[in-house]
Amino acid sequence: MLSQQLIQSPVFRGINAEEMEELLQKVQYRIRKYHKGDMVAFREDRCENLMIVLKGSVKGEMLDPSGKTIKIEDIMAPYPIASAFLFGQKNQFPVNVTANADVEIFFLDKQSVIELFQNNKTFLVNYLNSISNRSQFLAQKLLFLSFKTIKGKLANYILKQAAPDKEKIELPKSQAEMAQFFGVTRPSFARSLKEMEQEGMIEVNRREIKIRDRRALFSLMQQ
């Protein structure tokens, strides 16, 4: 049931299924289906709807100045897409959005979103929290992309995952998937990881990485 799916989304969290049913009766919405590889939105398309992934996942990608595709993130159900860009003077998609597999997306037009802001405080607070979280994520992503070398990006990632008190982390994805996340080729990613190990900064055992020289990792971030 649609209401059950939507109340799992961060923007509708705290609203029960009965309330959600009542809200849906008062607004204009639609559901669209996409197949794997379909383009959901192009960068700089106007963002005129609140879009929530109901099934499957999409990915946000952008091109760097050299034309290389950089994966920004995957957005899984039941999270919203580009909710921070629905309002503002330049309400355009910041990245290309592509379906990772078969996907269903809920569309709620901007005027209906405004009406829900006026009529439901829970939705308003959830939405503000959602776009604030997205802004913080994008700020961290920009910081990550600012590192000039693959090793610098790796060092930042490892230290962030380890926090101050951990000596080991586990990569959540395969090297090929991590390379895509870093916006580099798999051989380049693997070579940088190996060089850092040879230089005594880390120890690698499959997906597990153990920090050997935290100071050296911080130095890589300055290069």
Score class of each variant (00 low, 15 high):
Leu116Met: 15
Ser135Leu: 08
Ser83Trp: 01
His35Gly: 15
Arg46His: 02
Gln92Lys: 09
Gln25His: 14
Tyr29Trp: 15
Leu171Met: 14
Asn126Cys: 13
Asn119Pro: 05
Ile202Ala: 02
Asp109Phe: 03
Gln223Tyr: 05
Leu128Cys: 06
Leu2Lys: 12
Glu203Trp: 00
Gly67Lys: 08
Phe85Trp: 10
Tyr157Met: 05
Ile158Phe: 12
Phe182Cys: 11
Ile72Phe: 02
Gln161Glu: 13
Glu170Thr: 13
Gly56Ala: 14
Arg215Asp: 13
Thr185Pro: 11
Met76Gly: 00
Gln223Ile: 11
Phe181Pro: 04
Val58Met: 00
Lys173Thr: 10
Glu203Thr: 06
Arg206Gln: 06
Phe117Gly: 13
Glu104Tyr: 07
Gly88Ala: 08
Glu48Arg: 02
Phe42Lys: 06
Val113Tyr: 06
Asp74Glu: 07
Leu86Thr: 08
Lys160Ala: 10
Glu115Cys: 06
Ala155Gly: 03
Gln175Gly: 07
Val97Lys: 00
Ile72Trp: 00
Pro94Tyr: 07
Glu21Arg: 15
Lys121Met: 10
Gln140His: 09
Met76Val: 03
Gln111Cys: 08
Thr149Asn: 04
Glu170Gly: 01
Ser83Asn: 08
Leu171His: 08
Asn156Ser: 03
Leu24Ile: 15
Ala216Thr: 05
Gln4Met: 07
Ile209Ser: 00
Met221Thr: 05
Met62Cys: 10
Ala17Glu: 15
Pro78Gln: 03
Asn49Asp: 10
Pro65Gln: 02
Ile7Cys: 15
Lys26Tyr: 10
Gln198Lys: 08
Asp102Val: 01
Ser188Gly: 15
Val95Leu: 12
Gln223Gly: 08
Gln180Met: 05
Gln140Gly: 14
